[in-house]
Amino acid sequence: MAASIAARRLLSRATAARRVLPLASVAALAPRRFSAGASVPPQTPTPTLPPPPLEPTPEPLGSEGAGAGASSSSSSFTGTGASGAHRSSPGAAAGARRQAGAGYQEEQEKVLRASLLHVPRMGWSESAMVAGARDVGVSPAIVGAFPRKEAALVEFFMDDCLQQLIDRIDAGEGEQLKTLILSERLSKLVRMRLEMQAPYISKWPQALSIQSQPANVSTSLKQRAVLVDEIWHAAGDAGSDIDWYVKRTVLGGIYSTSEVYMLTDNSPEFRDTWTFVNRRIKDALDLQKTFQEAAYLAEAMGAGVGGTVQGVLNRVFQNRSP
């Protein structure tokens, strides 16, 4: 399974010719299942992403301290595990280790996916993860081995939604988008992504609070940055000017405010939220146009004033010349 995912990722990278998100923090991410980012801003070389680690090292303990007076340090052990007289070659040992790591990743993904079914009832909690583990037939004790428990579940959901969004765009919705104007394209993509949260909306405030915990903030921001970049890329933005950052910052703000608006929306099928999204995106693009027009005006005025001053100076100097 892991191999097929890797193959699919390579294929999607090759066909879509997607480039890497330029934010240093995001570039540092090991590649996930989805294509990590879309377009590159000015003067930013495309960084080469490192291969994913064979066995993920444990994450910082975060809020779980070792207790007063018990200073702690943790370490992950990745020995070859070859025992007896016949020691396996380093290559074989590494292969076995990679396989073991893949086995864990696969089990983790199965458990987290099954856990999502229990989130509407149990929330983004260990209880949901325990129920998910039971569903897939592994001991729920495995949940204790996940680095940041509930945060792992929320992060998995975010990654999975992004992958679904990319799959839908690649499966043909991308073609339909081409017939729409930019504001409609962006609105549709934001809506597609927010609709994925609809089944979990009653528990989404809990997810937001988990994401805002200090230990989880950086991953949360990276995930949102990648999401916003994918949306711009799918909307057809291939710009490489200074607007690159502005566009992503503005859309990130719109996405976050829409997400919060959605929590208080009681209209049927979140109609008010979609209206809100449409308006905000239109406003942002209109504002961008206004800024551009202001810039052109300033440029023109500058050119005009400059021309006038230059003309006056020329005359002065011409008169003074013998």
Binding site: P58, G69, A70, S75, S76, F77, G79, A100, Y104, A145
Partner: peptide, 29 residues
């Protein structure tokens, strides 16, 4: 290393009080 040789995966340890005690953990898959 011994824990891993017994068949456990994701073998990790955490030192407490500079190594006076250590918590080793492993996962059976």
């Amino acid at each position: 290393q011994m824990i891993q040789e017994a068949g456990f995966e994701r073998v990790e340890y955490e030192n407490l009080v500079g190594g006076v005690v250590a918590i080793h953990s492993g996962l059976k898959l």
